[in-house]
Amino acid sequence: MKKIIMAVLLLLGVACAGGGYYIFYYKPQQDAELAKLMAEQEKVEPIAMVEEEEEQAPPKPPVTDYYVSPDKLGVRESPDYDAFVESVVYRGDKLHVLEKKDGWGRISPYYVYEDGGQEVAEWVPMEALLEVAPTITKDERTETVSSYIEKSDDFKQHFEMFVKKTDQLLKDKTCVPEDFEETSGWMRSITFKPRNVYFVYCGGIKQANKIYLDVETGEIFYR
């Protein structure tokens, strides 16, 4: 009986010793190694994710569409302020830039007007362009449009109708600002008396290009 009790006590002692080894030595060591491994993974994974995101992000396409900022901007035949002005663009006009060179933007193909002649194109200064269309208030628009037609016959008398109908013809692209500037605005017609009619040429100086305006009714018509 004593032998059996001794054997049981011996087994209990061995079990307690094993449990103590596991609790006080082996398990803390495992926990420490696990904590170290998790800490290393937390440091490595975010870097890998950032690198992966950077590799997947496509490059931004270059900006090629711009808007005119000043009220009026000369388009020149070479990238130089001393170059000949071929045409004029206006505030808010959208331009597609084909090439950028020394602070200038080319907005047309190259042309050669004679055999062996120099290549020319249409250029505008990039400093006069915006990436976003400018906000134009009603008063600013009225001022701009009126500047095109301020030499019209009886301008002050029919100011509101002239501005309204000029703006309409510009917006629907029937006319361009140069049309009004070339004719000094609206001219009084004597063909339709007693009606109060004025006219302007848009796109040419033929009868087919002649646009009439009855300032009393606001009617725009052709002959």
Rank of each mutant, 00 (worst) to 15 (best):
Y212E: 05
M38P: 00
V163L: 09
R195T: 08
T144R: 15
D93K: 03
F192L: 01
A48S: 12
V88Q: 08
F159N: 07
P79L: 02
V44H: 11
E216A: 14
W104H: 07
P70H: 04
T174Y: 11
D154W: 09
A17S: 15
T166I: 07
D82W: 05
G92S: 05
A133D: 00
G105L: 07
R223C: 03
E86Q: 10
P177N: 08
Y201P: 07
Y198I: 02
I149G: 03
I205T: 09
D154I: 07
E33V: 11
D82E: 15
D71M: 12
E140P: 04
E140M: 12
Y25S: 11
E127C: 00
V14R: 00
K2W: 07
M38D: 06
H158T: 08
E53F: 13
E51D: 12
A48I: 10
C175N: 10
E150F: 06
P125E: 09
E178M: 08
P134M: 03
P58Q: 08
Y110K: 03
G92A: 05
I149Y: 02
T183C: 06
M161C: 06
F159Y: 15
E114F: 15
H158Y: 14
R91C: 00
I23N: 11
Y81S: 12
W186Q: 08
Y67W: 06
G103C: 15
M126L: 10
R91L: 01
G204C: 03
E114I: 09
K72F: 05
P125S: 05
E178A: 09
D65Y: 13
R188K: 15
G203K: 02
G74H: 08
K94I: 00
G105K: 09
D172H: 00
A83E: 02
E127M: 03
S184R: 02
Q118E: 15
E160L: 08
E182P: 00
Y26T: 11
W186Y: 10
F159H: 13
V197H: 01
K138G: 13
I205Y: 12
D172Q: 07
G218N: 13
A83S: 10
I149T: 03
E114K: 14
P62D: 04
G13A: 03
I220Q: 09
Q157R: 14
T142A: 09
Y90F: 13
C175S: 05
I190W: 15
S189A: 01
E219S: 13
I4H: 09
A32P: 04
L37M: 12
K138I: 06
V200H: 04
L34N: 10
T64F: 05
S146I: 01
Q118F: 11
K138F: 12
R91I: 05
L11A: 15
Q118R: 11
E33K: 15
C16H: 06
E122I: 03
T191K: 15
K210S: 14
T137E: 01
E150R: 11
T166Y: 11
E51C: 05
Y66G: 03
V145K: 10
K101G: 00
E33Y: 02
T144K: 13
Y201D: 14
K171W: 01
S87I: 04
P134N: 01
S78I: 05
D139E: 11
N196I: 11
M1N: 10
G117Q: 05
L169Y: 04
Y111A: 03
E127T: 02
P79Q: 02
K156G: 14
K138P: 08
L130Q: 01
M126G: 01
A83G: 03
E182I: 06
D82A: 13
